[in-house]
Design a protein around this nucleic acid. Structure first.
Length: 205
DNA sequence: GAGTCCTCGCGATTACATCA
DNA sequence: ATGATGTAATCGCGAGGACT
């Protein structure tokens, strides 16, 4: 234990009743013991300590805290004399008030981040569901392409002038069509959607 | 520049008051 | 009577300034 701490303890012992502080047994792994305060019996130099500040005192301190969270020595002394408190009490009040303010700010920040996180999680779920739908869509489209490709192959092997006829074959719009504004392929029933000959061109003119 | 002392602020903790 | 909560007070530590 260093000199400074010993002095501190001596001072405290002077101010309060002797034997007020005891040595805590350090836990395993802890380097330094922490002194434990004993219960106040009211037998100290100053008698029973005043605990609660009055509502007026707290209001005044709150007003000052609202103006400025830090406390310069001059302001501390002025506040202390105005309120009939020890400057140390004023300093302690500001210290504790800053701690409470910081905690509150942290809680607010946590709530904001939590809300933001939750909405992002919801958005992620929606996007994942969308991806799933699009993958299914892609799979169906690929199957359809394969089917059409197989059909084209069959036609080309059966017809002598196959290369020309395939080249000129109109698009088969019977099963898939792209609807404007959706950018998506929709399944359409095959009946009566086959456009014979070159008439399909007029659909796009 | 290095060492010492002092003061201050902060985080963690304790003791006490109050309330449900 | 008792546990939960709020708060005044304390401890231990580090940072920074003044001084030697």
């Amino acid at each position: 234990m260093n000199h400074k701490v010993e002095e501190h303890i001596a001072l405290i012992s002077q101010l309060y009743n002797p034997g007020l502080y005891t040595q805590m047994v350090p836990k395993q792994g802890e380097s330094k013991p922490r002194r434990r305060r004993k219960k106040n019996t009211g037998e100290g130099v100053s008698g029973a300590r005043k605990r609660k500040l009055s509502a007026e005192q707290v209001n005044f301190l709150e007003m000052n805290f609202g103006d400025e969270h830090k406390l310069e020595t001059e302001r501390k002394d002025k506040l202390a004399s105005d309120l009939g408190l020890d400057p140390r009490q004023v300093a302690v009040w500001f210290q504790n008030r800053r701690a409470r303010w910081k905690n509150k700010k942290l809680e607010e920040e946590y709530t904001k981040l939590k809300t933001a996180h939750e909405s992002i999680v919801v958005e992620k779920c929606q996007l994942e569901s969308e991806v799933l739908k699009l993958k299914e869509q892609l799979s169906r489209t690929e199957k359809e392409i394969q089917r059409l490709s197989d059909r084209a192959d069959r036609v080309s092997t059966n017809s002598p002038s196959s290369s020309l006829s395939i080249a000129m074959e109109p698009p088969f719009l019977g099963e898939f069509a792209v609807l404007e504004g959706y950018g998506d392929a929709f399944y359409m029933p095959p009946e009566n959607n086959y456009i014979p000959g070159m008439e399909w061109i007029s659909q796009y003119m």
